[in-house]
């Protein structure tokens, strides 16, 4: 099938099998920032935004992305710069393989996610084996505070 969508703000057209995953489509188009992890929607390293919703691109059928507005980690510096900055400054990463998914997930958080419990619950599907999550949670809280326009507490 011919997939028409927008990716990171630009028109995107690709001829893909309807049963392929959005992950395969994006990586096949050179957008390798989105990673392949567990392939069963559990680990979160393949998280992308489809029409503002965070999805596991490994499970998301390419066809369901027709006409959708898709954002990947490559677009986050444009769409959610405060989230990217927060992860860099809080060192919210080690090996970095989960980082694209963490950043996209935080970029999809609504303003209702304000405290640590909320962040942990929201991000519970984005696994990290390195950090113990502390600096990731710091980065998420920092990003939310920046988006609210608050001075980030130190």
């Amino acid at each position: 099938m011919k997939l028409h969508a927008r990716v990171n703000g630009s028109p995107f057209v690709a001829e893909v099998p309807a049963t392929s995953s959005l992950l395969e489509v994006l990586r096949g188009a050179g957008l390798t920032g989105t990673k392949e992890g567990c392939r069963i929607g559990v680990c979160g390293v393949c998280t992308v935004l489809v029409d503002d919703r965070p999805v596991s691109s490994c499970l998301y059928l390419a066809g369901c992305a027709s006409e959708a507005d898709i954002w990947t980690v490559e677009g986050m510096a444009e769409r959610a710069p405060s989230v990217v900055d927060a992860f860099v400054e809080c060192e919210g990463m080690q090996c970095g393989i989960c980082t694209p998914g963490q950043i996209v997930a935080v970029a999809s958080m609504g303003p209702d996610v304000r405290d640590e419990n909320g962040v942990r619950r929201y991000l519970s599907g984005n696994l990290c084996r390195c950090t113990g999550y502390g600096t990731i949670v710091d980065a998420a809280l920092d990003a939310q505070a920046r988006r609210r326009g608050e001075v980030a507490p130190t």
Binding site: R53, S108, Y122, G125
Partner: peptide, 9 residues
């Protein structure tokens, strides 16, 4: 159900 991403779709 599942996680944030599952519930979103």
């Amino acid at each position: 159900v599942g996680n944030t991403r599952v519930r979103a779709v």
